[in-house]
Design a protein around this nucleic acid. Structure first.
Lengths: 132, 132
DNA sequence: AATTTTATCTTGACATTGTCTAATATAATA
DNA sequence: TATTATATTAGACAATGTCAAGATAAAATT
């Protein structure tokens, strides 16, 4: 029940060869592919698939909750005159970014991550800023 | 002692009108400007300043530790077939992204952030993956 | 089956973010 | 002043993403 076709059907997304190619790759991959990675793969199965279709399909999958989307990679950067360590809160509506003082949050459990040597970390929160 | 000129001198960055314009804006702004925001402002003071110079200067400031840099905004996105909640670890050398199971980390203190209504959050860690 | 309607795809144009190079300008040094 | 080193510029380029218009295909209706 994990083939691309039935996944699409189950989510009421009309299956097409293009969408199947996208889903096959993206839902199996344990890496974190970029849209362009997906495009490259999809073109192997479906050489005429267009960039727009890949983007549309990925967005569809995200809307349906089948796929997560993370803005971790570089590509759009903002600068921060506050060079104290701090966390960030992003207003989902406006995109505004607020600094959260470092000592307001505590992250426990990092020392249990044996596979990783941690240079730095931060908490990113998203939501809505309350009006005063 | 907080004017752009002395800041640049103190850090042994040769002051130029272009750099001063960049520093003035970026070190005072409490918002989180993008490179393009900085460019726009810098051109008010220094109409001929080029995109390259702004980028160069921002990178210089980051290298010297005068400025923080965050990749929070959208612009380059990766997708994630793991739709369970989880945190992320980014390998600083390779750029590889690893999922950290949700229950491995705990973030305390969120309820003290009275000004914000939190829809979601995650911890982003950066460092080096240990080889086995 | 034929036609209309609807959904999907493609192409190509465009915007944004960022890097790079070659040429020029400026400053520092001898 | 002549030389050298450092900064700046313009423009080309690449990557990521959005959008609109027309072409295609599928579904629904008659």
């Amino acid at each position: 029940m994990k083939d691309a076709l039935s996944i699409l059907r189950r989510c009421k997304i009309q299956p097409t060869p293009q969408r199947i190619a996208v889903v096959e790759y993206v839902l199996k991959s344990k890496a974190h592919p970029s849209a362009d990675d997906v495009l490259s793969y999809a073109r192997k199965k479906c050489p005429t698939v267009s960039r727009a279709t890949v983007y549309n399909t990925l967005n569809l999958l995200v809307e349906k909750g089948l796929l997560g989307m993370q803005t971790i990679k570089e590509g759009a950067v903002v600068f921060d005159s506050n060079i104290e360590k701090h966390h960030h809160f992003v207003d989902s509506e406006t995109g505004d970014i607020y600094d959260i003082p470092w000592d307001q949050l505590e992250v426990k459990g990092k020392d249990k991550l044996k596979d990783f040597e941690i240079f730095e970390f931060q908490v990113i929160l998203r939501g809505r800023r309350k009006k005063k």
